[in-house]
Design a protein around this nucleic acid. Structure first.
Lengths: 215, 215
DNA sequence: TATTGTGAATTTTTTCACAGCC
DNA sequence: GGCTGTGAAAAAATTCACAATA
């Protein structure tokens, strides 16, 4: 997968891509507070970074600041949003409506960032056809049909580890190109599909290790 | 925070630390399958990496392989586990027993990796004193007392963004040194505390961006 | 023969310093 | 004077190639 290029043809570091949504989040918050201009140092501090790094990150997208002043909050938010393709609503499905899947269906944060959860899927007949918070739970066997009908672009996997790869394979065969996986297993996907892993236990293990370093 | 040093005094890259738990996970899986030796390439493939990188990663911990043969699964797992301080059970509390907190309390993966969820906390009087899956939900006001009583070392924050920083401050004042935060806000913590952020919307935004790169 | 362990080369990321501009 | 944008320097991480050895 190639990196996106700047207008000048330079590659944008992966590390920058990961920080852009954080900046976007705080820009939105500043805008809500009525703040219209922010210097790099202040925004970076909110986001847990530093001024020079933020400026370098933004410089890949273009020149959006004003020297001696700072960045226009609304303008910069708009540009990051557009650059990342986040300026339109995207439809999401959740595969596996257990406790975690249920929690994600109820999570308000997704809607705020433009992700609309459009369907839940499960293989448990007790669940199928039920509604969770106005959302219909479908049979996993109907994945292909519903994905087309609802124009779903991103799928979140919250099934057991043992089922996750076969669910991923099925999603890919349905044309899904983006998968967020909560099952503790590294998904094998072809080059034209992106998969992102969130393994809660591993996060705890890393945290725990850094804690032992403190003393 | 200093990096942990190898026996030879060299620093271990942060990137390596992040991969070690993944190796550990697959080593445990291999052991369960009765496989006792694995070459770097095979283990790396499971973990989504490559052979040379895995060998470089492990070389920071010492020499655990056998040339021409591979790594002894049990021995290597033991060493990674010990190195990361994961060879003893650790007590965890969850602050905020909403849908997500509830899902985490029920998550079986934590126990498998040696993290024992010992307490839930909430400020909703409807929840306090109730049991979720055998786990008692306490009043947030009793944080300090219960943390001491139960020797809790790690806390997971699953409250609303607006409350997260004040909860974190309270945890820190109770002596907690490791925080896993699910609220979409960058926590400010002193140098002698580690905080790790999982922002689900940001993960989706990054994923969504990489998806747009594909076409 | 097969596979590890590692120094060296390469690539990526971060930090720095300051010219350029408001 | 204050803050951005950026090339250059430094640091970190990855990849490579191959000597060492079971």
């Amino acid at each position: 997968m190639d990196k996106k290029k700047t207008s000048k043809g330079k590659k944008i570091p992966k590390a920058t891509i990961i920080r852009l949504p954080v900046y976007l989040h705080y820009l939105t918050e500043l805008a809500q507070k009525g703040i219209s201009v922010v210097p790099s140092h202040d925004l970076a501090e909110l986001a847990g970074g530093n001024g020079p790094q933020l400026r370098k990150d933004l410089s890949y997208l273009g020149e959006f600041g004003t020297r001696g002043v700072g960045y226009n909050v609304g303008r910069l938010a708009h540009h990051i949003s557009k650059f990342m393709g986040l300026n339109k609503e995207q439809s999401v499905a959740i595969i596996g409506v257990g406790k975690l899947g249920m929690a994600l269906i109820n999570y308000k944060g997704f809607a705020e960032k433009g992700f609309k959860i459009c369907a839940g899927f499960d293989n448990n007949s007790q669940m199928i056809g039920k509604k969770v918070d106005d959302l219909v739970i479908y049979d996993v066997r109907d994945l292909g049909k519903i994905i087309k009908e609802k124009d779903i672009e991103i799928c979140i996997i919250t099934v057991a580890a043992s089922e996750a790869q076969s669910i991923a394979d099925k999603l890919i065969s349905c044309g899904i190109k983006a998968i967020l996986n909560f099952a503790p297993i590294f998904l094998k996907v072809p080059d034209d599909v992106v998969a992102c892993q969130i393994d809660l236990s591993i996060e705890l293990q890393i945290l725990s290790f850094y804690r032992t370093l403190l003393k």
